[in-house]
Each structure stands twice: as structure tokens, then as C-alpha cells.
Design a protein around this nucleic acid. Structure first.
Lengths: 364, 364
DNA sequence: GTGAAAGCGCTAACAT
DNA sequence: ATGTTAGCGCTTTCAC
């Protein structure tokens, strides 16, 4: 329809256009939107009506230049292809929208460099930042926190406000569950050493093991992916125990898959517990017993905290905000029975898996 | 360390600070970054060095105000909790970053209103928009396209450039596959009526059925979720066929689950084909046969097209760019055998599923 | 309660 | 090749 030359864009009306149409000064129009109380009610009404008629929208860029209020926050994520982030992103986005903020998403693709790069670019534009499972160093994080209000998710960094899940209590629930089922020897499949939560989980696990008199065994670290779990299955079969706790669900799902490939039955031969209750844990056979974190709440809490920081409502607090977890019991855990696991044979399986959609998915 | 009053932020150096330090005019500094060729090499080098020393970064907001170049694009998604978008987002983000662009993510949460709201807010800031599986009307889309360069994903809108997967060929592959396995009667589980791709798939299905002399049956529409698939299982059992093609993988996964709950075996009793090859389709038992779209490429193509539009390198083309699909054959499809499906009994199952992480996941 | 004017940091004209 | 000037659209003094 618009038979113009190239990229045909409509010139948006400015505040001056509205002011002229309403017969007032631009400053009055500005006030009518920002501080309606300080403008004559009639005038304000008229201005707003005219503004709507003209399709006027205040230019956020111009606003941001002077006031610094860009109404944008950034959410940086270590890897967007991890289902773990679904609800976190959504919770964050919901909280942001409710407050009239737009969310900028930076997927680090597991790369420290990309994460910094994306952040560098965004820092000056956004009013605040949420770092979810970041791979950056504590130092980098603190430096960024100096530039903008910042909240870290799933990690405690001294001097930077953070939101974390209650690893300690969560692990305890998982161990109690396995203990109650008669398991006395547990293997932990470790995640990336750089992951703060891996350290937390392992530590909590050791404490729980001591208290309950359980034997503990650690395998890994593995990449926190389905493929990592498949690899872990091999290792595990060489030193089997009756129960396994995996760093996260992706790893646990891979383990289930790897065990099934070599004929080890879950839960008859091994009980498996994961972390996070991500998409798919209820679809596989057997369903995965896992520690569910209220991910939506996690994202929401982080953003709300950030907005409070931005508005100055709240001063940065060093102590992490802790979100509780709950154990979701499914079919992958059961009573301990005499272990009978053969050595791995069909290694060929692995190469097949490389082509599948879940293989490359990773976690932070 | 910084014992200041409230939210302590460092004042970033401006272009004037750099200019003063370098003993040149601000415009020269600007040129040194934007058009190095038009500045004496020595001067440019000195300026850059000083800028780095001072930690100067050009303020993107100020730049955007004058030039309109915010270096940001928006990606609007109908529902971020759908694994379908994983790789799309990632491909899009990768393409954006390579070009020096930051990506703003708008999750519509299945809501037309939220989508428009988020877009309204972002339109003025971003240089262009990718609409993935949008729920907006053609009219809304065209209006937005008037404001900014825009590309639609998974939908053809007259007058707006788009990128779509080759439904026609894809469906044909799926039907050929089932046909070759001896299936002569296929049920299609329909997705949301608002979804453009649902219409496309159904149409392609009908054409293929006619050509191959197959009988076709349509059930639905269902919400394109795991839960929708569970519901579909009930309906399907009342009018069973030997093969099913679902609108998408989420629906197919739910179907597998629902069928398993009532004791219908896949693929012995029914063969099931999904769409998209999302995360998890290779983890369930049986693995889901599905039409894989190169999702990463889809996202990448859309953004690259958008950037070409923005830079003016390319004029908007009405004809959709088509991306090919390929059939991934897994265990959910097999030779046709005499159907023997009992009426549904255990309806109770459904309420259980409502609590699970995969239940609420939806698609666009 | 309203208007006038200055300026956020940058870049695009124009001038030299 | 570099400097000077003006102004993007808005908000925020400061007058009235």
C-alpha cells in the first residue's frame, strides 16, 4: 500500500507536536504524563486525549538520555538452551513487565567472553542487571556491580546481593529420602567445577552423609548435559552404588539414558535423583525423582529485588536471599536391593546420541 | 571499598572528557570510532588509546537519540517455555551478536495483549523486530511493520517479509514414511486455530492424503502442550487409527503419555509422528519420530534478514524464505498391525499431570 | 499552574 | 584532516 522509496517508516509525533496541538508548552505535556497532580485536571485530560489521538508515545531513548531511566533491565543467562531457565526467564519477564520494564536477554552460550561482551554492550543502556548462573569471575561481577545495580542468581558473591536456592536443605531432603529407602552408599555426579552450586551441593552432601552415617562417592566433573550424563553412566558402572544424586536433571536424564543402554534398570538396580525439576523429567521412563526449585519465583524474586535496588527502595544486602526447594518423588527412586550391575559393553551407543536435539543442551 | 551514600555508580567519561584529554574536538573522537578513515592515523590511534585508558565507552542511548541506531533488535516469542524456541533464540542471538546488535526478548506468554504491550514499549528503541509464531493479527503485524523493519517467523503475512519452514515437503515426508509402513488411515491432532502453521500442515496433509489414497481424520484443536496431548489421547482412543501426526512435539509427547496411561502401546498399536524435534523427543520411550526443522538456522536467517532490511542492503521481499525440514525416524513409528485399542478407563491420571513441570509448557 | 530555556552525550552538517 | 555549531526528544530547573 505505502508505495514509498525504501524502508518506509512513519515519523512518530514528538512531544512538541502534541504541545502545539494542545496549545500548551512541551513541559506541560511532559508533566501531564509524569506528574499529573501538578497540572490542571482539565488541561491534563485534554493533553492526554490529544496525545492518544495523535498516537503519541514518549520516546524512551530521549527520556533515557536525560534521566537515565531507560526502563530496561538485562538478564544474562549462561545458556538459554537449558530448560532450567524456562521459568526463571518467565518469572523475571513477568516481574519486569508488571513494573513497566523491558527485559533484555543476553545468552552467554556458556562463554565467559560472550557474556562479558553482551553485558558490556548493554550496561550503559539498562538500569540494572540480573546475572543467572554466570560464568564470570567474582572480580568481574563486582566491577559490573559498581556500574549498575546488579543481582546474582544461583551464586553468592561477597558484596553483591544474590538470590540462591536452599541447596543445604534440598540436599538433605534428597539424602533423607534415599536413606529412608535403605540406601547407604551414594554416588554424586559432579557438575562443572566453575559452578558455584556444584560446590554447595557437594558440601551439603558431605555434611548430610556424615550425619546419617552414609558412604559417599564422587564422580566427575561432567559437563552438565544429557551427553555428560551418558558419559557418567559408563564411569558409574565401573564403580556402582545403589543410589546416585546428579548435579542437575540434564545429567540425571543422560544417566538414565546411559544406564538403560547398557541394561541397568532404574530403580531396580539403581535409584537416581536429579536437581531442578526441569521439562521432561516427568516424561521419561522412569519419571525422575528430583529436587524442585520454584524457578518462576526465583526469576521473579531476582527482578523484584533488582527493581527495589534501582528505585532505591532497598539498599543492597550482602546476605543471599534463599529460596526453598521441595523433593518431587517419582519412579526413579525405590527401595535398595542387592546391586547387580554388569560392566559396560555397548559403547557404540554414544556416537548415535550426538545427533539428537537433547545432546547439546547444557546448563550453568 | 566504595563507602559512598546509596547506590554508588561511577560516572562514565563522556566523549568530551576524551576529547579534552586528547586535545582534539569531540567530533574528531566520534569520527575516530565511527569513520577511522577520515581521521589522521596517528590522531586516531592516540584517541583510541586515551579512550581505552579512560575506560570510555560511547553512550548507546545518546547515539541512538540522534542517529536512530540503537544497535538493538527485538525478538518476540509467543511462549518462551516452549523448548521449540531454544535454538531459534540462540540462532537469533548469535546472528545479532555477530553484527554487534543486542537482542531484546519479549515473551508474550501466549497473550496477544502482552505481546502488543511489550512490543509497544520496545518499538521505539529497537531498530527492527522479529516476530516468532506471533499471535497478533495480520493487521497489527502490518501496522508494526510500518514503524520498523520486521520479519515474521513461521507465518506468512502478505506484504511482510517472513521465514517459514517447508511444511508442505515436511508433511509429505511424514506421510510417505507412514504410507511406506503400511498405514492407510491417519489422524491429525490439530493445534491452535490461530496458528498459521496449523492451517498449513493440515492443508499439506490433505493434499498428500489425496495423492497417496490415504484416509484422513482430524481431531482437535488442542492447546499445543503436553497436557493438550494427554487430552487428545482420550479422544483418539474413541476413534483410533493406526497412525497419528501431531501438530507439534509437545502435543505428541502428551499423546504418548496419555496412551501409555491407558495401556495403548506405541508403536505396536499406534504410530506417532511429531513436529520440530524439540528437547526430550529423544529421551522418552519410545523415542519420537518427528519432523526436524533447523531451528538454529531459522533464528539466524530471520535476524540476518532483518539486519539486511535495517541496513538497507535488501529490500523487503513478500515471498517467504523457506527452510527445509528433515524426518527423524525414531521408535514411535513402525509397521501397521491390526488395531486393538480399548476404550479409555483411567481418567484419573489427568489431575496428577497438572502438577508436573512439562504440563504447562505451551507452544505458538 | 504554566511557560521558557538549558542541556543529557552524541553525531551530522557546515566551515576552515 | 579537523574544528564549530546545532540539535535529536525529552525533562528539569527557574521564572512568572
Amino acid at each position: 500500500m505505502a508505495g514509498s522509496t525504501g524502508s518506509d517508516e512513519q515519523a512518530a509525533p514528538t512531544i512538541y507536536d502534541v504541545a502545539r496541538a494542545a496549545g500548551v508548552a512541551a513541559s506541560t505535556v511532559s508533566r501531564a504524563f509524569a506528574r499529573p497532580g501538578r497540572v490542571n485536571a482539565d488541561t491534563a485530560g485534554r493533553i492526554r486525549r490529544i496525545a492518544v489521538e495523535m498516537g503519541y508515545r514518549t520516546n524512551p531513548v530521549a527520556r533515557a538520555l536525560l534521566s537515565g531511566r531507560s526502563s530496561m533491565i538485562a538478564l544474562a543467562i549462561s545458556d538459554i538452551t537449558n530448560p532450567y531457565y524456562f521459568e526463571i526467564i518467565r518469572g523475571a519477564q513477568a516481574a519486569a513487565m508488571e513494573a513497566g520494564y523491558t527485559m533484555l536477554l543476553a545468552d552467554a552460550q556458556e562463554s565467559d567472553r560472550l557474556e562479558r561482551e553482551a553485558l558490556d554492550r548493554a550496561v550503559q543502556t539498562v538500569e540494572g542487571i540480573v546475572l543467572a548462573s554466570t560464568r564470570m569471575s567474582d572480580t568481574s561481577i563486582r566491577m559490573t556491580a559498581k556500574l549498575r545495580p546488579l543481582i546474582v542468581l544461583n551464586r553468592a558473591v561477597a558484596g553483591v546481593p544474590s538470590v540462591v536456592t536452599d541447596h543445604h536443605h534440598g540436599i538433605r531432603q534428597a539424602v533423607d529420602h534415599l536413606h529412608a529407602l535403605g540406601h547407604s552408599h551414594i554416588t554424586y555426579l559432579a557438575g562443572p567445577e566453575a559452578a558455584w552450586s556444584d560446590g554447595m551441593r557437594w558440601q551439603a552432601l558431605r555434611e548430610a552423609a556424615v550425619e546419617l552415617g552414609l558412604r559417599l562417592h564422587r564422580l566427575g566433573p561432567y559437563p552438565p548435559t544429557v551427553l555428560g550424563g551418558v558419559a557418567a553412566a559408563d564411569d558409574f558402572c565401573r564403580r556402582p552404588t545403589s543410589a546416585v544424586i546428579a548435579y542437575n536433571d540434564l545429567l540425571a536424564l543422560g544417566l538414565l539414558r546411559g544406564l538403560s543402554a547398557v541394561g541397568v534398570r532404574v530403580p531396580q538396580d539403581v535409584s537416581v535423583v536429579g536437581f531442578d525439576n526441569i521439562f521432561g523429567t516427568d516424561l521419561v521412563t522412569p519419571g525422575l525423582t528430583t529436587l524442585a526449585a520454584p524457578l518462576h519465583l526465583l526469576g521473579r524474586t531476582a527482578v523484584q529485588g533488582l527493581l527495589a535496588l534501582i528505585s532505591g527502595t532497598q539498599r543492597p544486602v550482602d546476605k543471599p536471599v534463599t529460596i526453598p526447594t521441595r523433593l518431587v518423588v517419582r519412579a526413579s527412586t525405590d527401595q535398595r536391593r542387592p546391586t547387580r550391575i554388569a560392566a559396560p559393553a555397548e559403547q557404540a551407543e554414544l556416537s548415535d546420541l550426538l545427533q539428537t536435539p537433547s545432546a547439546g543442551i547444557t546448563t550453568g
